[in-house]
Simulated assay, not measured.
Amino acid sequence: MTPSVLGTMIPPRFIDAVLTETGHHSVRRRPLLAWLVVYCLLALALYAQASDGEMLRDLLEGGR
């Protein structure tokens, strides 16, 4: 399993709902959107053996 699989295991609309419910949903465009930060944190926790660059690249290649 790779970090990009997180998007299929945890649907983006679920992340959006949690961010909205907790009042942390992005209101404006930012370099790192709130949903991407959540996936990055999950991937960092689950894939500690991978470098940050590898993890971020895999997440971005998997995309939404």
Rank of each mutant, 00 (worst) to 15 (best):
T22K: 08
L36H: 02
A43E: 11
R64S: 13
V18R: 03
P11L: 04
R29Q: 10
R28Q: 11
D16L: 05
A34N: 09
R30C: 04
L59Y: 04
G53N: 01
P31M: 01
V5K: 12
R57C: 12
P3D: 08
L36Q: 06
L19Y: 00
L32A: 08
P12L: 12
Y39R: 06
I10W: 07
V18G: 00
L46P: 11
G63M: 11
T2K: 09
L41G: 15
P3T: 09
P12H: 05
I10E: 01
V18W: 02
E21S: 10
S26I: 04
V5C: 07
D52R: 06
R29N: 07
A45K: 13
I15E: 05
P31N: 05
R30F: 03
S4N: 09
A50E: 15
L56I: 08
M1Q: 07
G62E: 01
R28I: 12
L60P: 13
L19M: 02
S4K: 12
R28S: 12
E61T: 09
T8G: 14
R57F: 08
L60H: 12
L56C: 04
M1F: 12
P12R: 08
F14Y: 14
W35T: 14
P11Q: 01
S26F: 04
R30H: 08
L41H: 11
V5I: 13
M9R: 10
T2M: 05
A17H: 01
L41P: 03
T20E: 14
L56T: 06
Y39M: 10
E61V: 06
R57Q: 15
D58G: 02
D16W: 01
E21M: 08
E54M: 00
A50P: 12
G62Q: 00
I15G: 03
A43M: 04
I10Y: 09
T2N: 07
D16R: 06
C40M: 13
R29Y: 09
A17N: 03
P3E: 09
R28H: 11
C40A: 15
F14H: 10
L59G: 08
R28L: 10
D52V: 12
G7E: 10
I15Y: 04
R13G: 05
H24R: 14
P12F: 07
T22I: 13
E61Y: 02
I15L: 07
A43I: 05
M9K: 09
S26Y: 02
H24G: 06
Y39C: 08
A50W: 15
Q49H: 02
L19G: 00
G23H: 11
L42M: 15
E21W: 05
V38E: 01
D16M: 05
R57M: 10
L6M: 06
A17W: 00
I10D: 01
R64M: 13
G7Y: 14
S51A: 00
V38C: 03
S26C: 06
L19K: 03
V5R: 10
V38D: 00
V38P: 02
W35R: 10
G23W: 10
E21K: 11
H24E: 10
L41K: 09
R57S: 15
A34V: 05
S26W: 06
R30I: 03
T8E: 14
H25E: 13
A45Y: 07
Y47R: 09
P12S: 09
R28C: 08
S26L: 07
R29G: 02
R57D: 15
L59R: 02
L33D: 15
P12K: 08
T2G: 02
